[in-house]
Write a protein that binds this DNA or RNA. Sequence first.
DNA 1: TTGAAAGCGCTAACAT
DNA 2: ATGTTAGCGCTTTCAA
Lengths: 331, 331
Amino acid sequence: MAVTIHHVARAAEVSVSTVSRAFTVPEMVHPQTRRKVLQVAEELGYQPNRAARGLVTGRTGNIGVVVPDVANPFFSAVLKGCAARAREARHVVFLADAAEDPRVEAEVVGAMAKQVDGIVLCSPREDSAQLDRLVGIAPLVLLNRADSGLPAVLMDSADGVRQAVEHLGALGHRRIAHLSGPASSWAGEHRLRGLRAAAPACDVEAVELGPFPPTFQGGIQATDLALARGVTAVLAFNDLMAIGVLNRLAARGVSVPEEMSVVGFDDIEMSSMTTQPLTTVRMPMEAAGRTAVDLLLDEQQPGPQLQRWLPTQLIVRSTTAPRMPVPVATR
Amino acid sequence: MAVTIHHVARAAEVSVSTVSRAFTVPEMVHPQTRRKVLQVAEELGYQPNRAARGLVTGRTGNIGVVVPDVANPFFSAVLKGCAARAREARHVVFLADAAEDPRVEAEVVGAMAKQVDGIVLCSPREDSAQLDRLVGIAPLVLLNRADSGLPAVLMDSADGVRQAVEHLGALGHRRIAHLSGPASSWAGEHRLRGLRAAAPACDVEAVELGPFPPTFQGGIQATDLALARGVTAVLAFNDLMAIGVLNRLAARGVSVPEEMSVVGFDDIEMSSMTTQPLTTVRMPMEAAGRTAVDLLLDEQQPGPQLQRWLPTQLIVRSTTAPRMPVPVATR
DNA sequence: TTGAAAGCGCTAACAT
DNA sequence: ATGTTAGCGCTTTCAA
């Protein structure tokens, strides 16, 4: 077995409680005793057993983060933020992958429950009823979804859409395509509402296409549809898709941004994967992670249920005026 | 406080041990009692406290995975494999991000230690001495590095290089560039050795370039160097870099694969991010994750220290004969 | 400032 | 088949 607090106590010739205090309330033990204890602990390679500690204190110093798919760069950015914030609070983050499966999701939440002080649920795939069942099992914060009266961190991508549409409209675009991602995405719905509100106000006609897979291939596929609808700009669900669009446009000899402007949604990362003029609505995912952990830590002394909205921001990387506005009636 | 085993015992009018058994050794309790217990537990929403359980059994049912950077697709693929294999063994995976920092790495290993049954350390960044200090803290398996006499899962990318060089040589390439990634990468060194062994045997001259950042931008940067050295093919450290190369080649009007062949190293994923003819040495990262967890679970009854080598495989996506072999002396 | 002892939620002998 | 009891490693009253 590993070295426990008893070994240290014995070796330092003090009681276990003194050793414990030397670690948790150092100012309460005599400096000399403390030095001795810490030194002995160091020599023996003692590390407090956090599980045991959690059993008595009720707090573990761990934060759980559950994501539908770790391979999704969206979530890895969020995790960065969580880890950074957790670190500041001297906590560590445990990540679990739900494999895009609601059942697995519930299961890992259960497994984590007593080993963490709270869980950040990112874009949970389960329905409201299933979600309700998880409430109370552990302190929960939702990210990228509002539901079950839980505290949540949300990104105002509807406003991002507004910025994009306004920008395109100002440049003379009159007909733009929106390539949506997976149906039944809370964020997707929210974004679509933003589009429908913004388009008329900017004198822009929005052509709603999709759903498409939110991948490079999805972008390829969507491009041909968009082209056939005679738009001068496209809003892609994310940058990955946008890069697919750019690729397909190049392959079909459509020049960007002269003949077609492309806007994606994402954190900055992905857009560094192309040299083409890709404009992006920046989603502050790292900040979202930080905020989620913030909520979790605050929640220790539970207050009113909270929603935190994070702003999104248009990052323009090219002038996107259409060479020749396409008449609305074109088809 | 949450509902504990005592609540269930009280409500079901049995002793705590019966409740415990109903969960851990169901066949040992009378079917009728068991039904009752499980039903009551269900109603009360009881979930065993895994931390407490771990304290007594010494096993938690959790597997820890530590990666230098979750945003790296290499590691998310590994994690997929770990999670899948863990799941089969009715374990769950806790992931921790070491933020590319050896200190953080040691810290999270310590934090995880007693809350998991073992830890998979992916491409650990710390030196051998630091690594030694972690041994014993928890069962450890290394992935993508051999060190400290620990069990390890390794990918035979040296052989992948051999396959690539052989392939290029057979097509008539006589001078190829190798774009290396970060220096001091165990895998990078190993791969370079493979290159130096394979090149002469295939009558190919290898131009060793780098180190470069293993990114899209790194690929851009490396391309100009490679072009100046008059090679007809490049082996890029990974697919991300390879895509940078492809982009830069296109920008400089070099046609692929007629004038230049590009080979990357990676799992399949990334190469789906381009429509250009990218040949890849496939690294079986998901399998690596599975294998690592395997080792961890076997290690319960510790045997001799083990290294597991996984094969890599060349996936050719285009014919890559140089239009006109460039004389070796060109510069 | 330190020690002794109770107990966190659970499992594993040992009884019955 | 079920109950009783002794801890797992730690923190935290309560005394000294």
